[in-house]
Design a protein around this nucleic acid. Structure first.
Length: 423
RNA sequence: GGAGAGGUGGCCGAGUGGUCGAAGGCGCACGCUUGGAAAGCGUGUGUGCCUCACAAGGGUACCGAGGGUUCGAAUCCCUCUCUCUCCGCCA
C-alpha cells in the first residue's frame, strides 16, 4: 500500500501516476488525509491524558509508601474520570487507524511515470523482440496433441484424481519438467541468488503482505479448517520471509530464488486460454525475488529482465518483452515487464514471465525496512519475476521443436534431461 | 491428538504489582590509552506514534499477540500463537 506520509507529501504526483492506470484517487486521498488529521489530534489528546494518569499513579505509590493511605485513596478517586476518557480516546484512535488502513488497502500502487496509459494488453508497449520464429509446416501440432502422441502428459488422468487443470506428467514429460526446474535453479545460483525451499501453504498474514489479500482471495485455494491458502506464487513465501524485519544497510541486496508448485483457482477462465498447458490450477515455477535499496530498484528491474531474457535465449525460444500499460498492470506493481514466447503450434504468444518493481508498496504492507548508519529508517523496494513458469515453456518447446523425427531438446537442456530428442 | 515447561532489547540473561525501556554480561560504535594492536578505562547503543522544522528537547506506547483486573502490570487473570520435553500417531 501507499504510505500516508507519501500521500501527504506527494499528493499531486501520486494522483497523476495513479491516473496512468485510470484510478481516480482524489476522494480516497482527501478522506485519508482528513482521517489522518483526526488521528493526530486524538493521539495528542490521548498522550496528554496518559501523562496525567502516569503522574497520578506515581504520586499514589509515593503516598502509600509514606503511609498516607487516606490521601492515596482520595487521589485514586480523582483518576476515574480521566481513566474513562483515556479509554474512550484510545478506542477512537484505534477506530481511526483502522479506517485509514481500510482505505489504503483499496488503492493500487502508483505506476512509474514512464508507464504507458492504457486499458488492456492492446496498449502494452513492446520494448524488445528476439529470437527466430519457428519454421513449421502447416500441419504442425499444438502441444496437447504432441503430449498425447509421445505420452508426455495425461490431462484426463489428472482430471480423474484431481480435476481439470491438474495434469499428470509421465516419462520424458516428467523428466523434462525436472530438468527445467534444475536448469532454472542452477542459472539463478550462478546469478547470485540464494536458493530456498519454502512451504506451499501460506497463512493470511503472508497473503496480505504481498497483496494477494484481502481482495484476491477468490483466486487462491483456501483450507478452511486451518485457515491457510495454497500459495499462487513463491513470491509470497520468499518476500514474506522478511516480513516485519528491520534490515541493516549492509544486508542489501537480498536475492532469493525458489522452485515451488503454485496453485490458482483461475475462476472465470475458459476456452483456448485453458487448453492444454496454457492455464493450469497447479503448475511449477521458479521465482526470483530481490529486496533492494530504493536507489537501485529500477536498475535492478532491468537486470532481472535481461536475466530472464537470457534464459529464453539459451532455450532458443523466440520472445518479446512488453512494458505493461497502466490498465494491464497488477494491483501491487509500479512497473511490470511481461515476457511472451511464441508457440508455433498454436501460433500464439504465451506469457511465461512477469517481472515487477513494487517499489515500497509491498514493503509498507510487510513492514519491511532498512537502516543506513545513523540515518532515518526507510522502506526497502521489492522486486520479483518468474524465471521461469514451466507449463508454457514446455508448450513452446514441444511445439516449436517438433520435427518428423520427434521433438528436439535445446542444447542447453540436454545435460539436464539426459536425452536430446523425444520420439 | 494428550500432558507439562517456556517466549524479556542484536545476543545471553536478571527481574513475580510501583522508583523497569527494563540490572548484569556479550556484541557494536566513538573516545582515551598505544609505535600499532590487544587488554584496560570512559561514553553511547531499539522501534512506532504525537509535539516539533521528518533538528534538539519533551510526551506516549511497546518485555510473543490480543483482551482483562488495578490508582499503577514484563510481573496477576483469560484467549490465541510459537518453541521445547514426554506420551500417542506417522513419511
Amino acid at each position: 500500500m501507499l504510505s500516508v506520509t507519501d500521500i501527504r507529501n506527494n499528493t499531486k504526483e501520486l494522483l497523476d501516476r495513479l491516473e496512468l492506470r485510470n484510478f481516480d484517487a482524489h476522494e480516497y486521498f482527501d478522506e485519508i488525509l482528513a482521517l489522518d488529521g483526526k488521528r493526530k489530534e486524538t493521539q495528542t489528546e490521548l498522550d496528554g491524558m496518559l501523562a496525567v494518569l502516569n503522574q497520578h499513579a506515581k504520586e499514589i505509590g509515593d503516598l502509600y509508601k509514606k503511609g498516607d493511605s487516606e490521601q492515596a485513596e482520595k487521589k485514586k478517586s480523582e483518576t476515574t474520570a480521566n481513566k474513562e476518557s483515556s479509554k474512550l480516546l484510545s478506542e477512537q484512535l484505534h477506530t481511526t487507524e483502522e479506517a485509514i488502513k481500510s482505505l489504503l488497502v483499496l488503492i493500487p500502487n502508483a505506476p512509474n511515470s514512464s508507464v504507458p496509459k492504457g486499458n488492456s494488453s492492446k496498449d502494452n508497449e513492446i520494448v524488445k523482440e528476439s529470437g527466430d520464429m519457428p519454421n513449421l509446416p502447416e500441419d504442425a501440432l499444438p502441444h496437447w496433441e504432441l503430449a498425447e502422441k509421445y505420452s508426455l502428459i495425461d490431462f484426463e488422468l489428472g482430471a480423474k484424481i484431481a480435476g481439470s487443470g491438474f495434469p499428470v506428467y509421465r516419462g520424458k514429460g516428467a523428466r523434462l519438467q525436472r530438468a527445467l526446474i534444475s536448469y532454472f535453479l542452477d542459472k539463478a545460483l550462478e546469478a547470485g541468488y540464494t536458493e530456498y525451499q519454502p512451504p506451499v501453504l501460506i497463512n493470511p498474514e503472508s497473503g496480505y503482505g504481498t497483496g494477494q489479500l484481502p481482495d484476491k482471495d477468490a483466486q487462491m485455494y483456501h483450507l478452511e479448517m486451518d485457515n491457510m491458502y495454497l500459495s499462487p506464487t513463491a513470491e509470497v513465501q520468499l518476500t514474506n520471509l522478511y516480513r516485519d524485519d528491520l534490515l541493516k544497510f549492509e544486508q542489501l541486496p537480498i536475492k532469493m530464488v525458489a522452485y515451488a508448485q503454485c496453485f490458482r483457482r483461475e475462476a472465470g477462465s475458459y476456452g483456448k486460454d485453458v487448453k492444454g498447458l496454457n492455464r493450469l490450477h497447479q503448475f511449477d515455477k521458479v521465482e526470483i525475488v530481490q529486496i533492494q535499496h530504493p536507489d537501485n530498484s529500477y536498475k535492478v528491474l532491468e537486470e532481472m529482465t535481461d536475466y530472464v531474457a537470457g534464459l529464453l535465449d539459451q532455450l532458443e525460444l523466440p520472445y518479446r518483452v512488453a512494458k505493461l500499460c497502466g490498465g494491464d498492470m497488477g494491483f501491487t506493481s509500479a512497473l511490470t515487464y511481461d515476457m511472451e514466447v511464441y508457440s508455433g503450434g498454436q501460433k500464439r504468444w504465451l506469457e511465461v514471465s512477469s517481472i515487477s518493481n513494487f517499489e515500497a508498496f509491498q514493503a509498507n504492507r510487510l513492514n519491511l525496512r532498512f537502516k543506513e548508519g545513523d540515518k532515518k529508517v526507510s522502506m526497502v523496494h521489492t522486486l520479483n519475476g518468474s524465471a521461469l513458469a514451466l507449463p508454457r515453456i514446455v508448450a513452446a518447446l514441444l511445439e516449436n521443436n517438433q520435427t518428423p523425427d520427434g521433438i528436439k531438446i535445446p542444447k542447453a537442456l540436454v545435460a539436464y534431461t539426459g536425452f536430446d530428442i523425444i520420439n
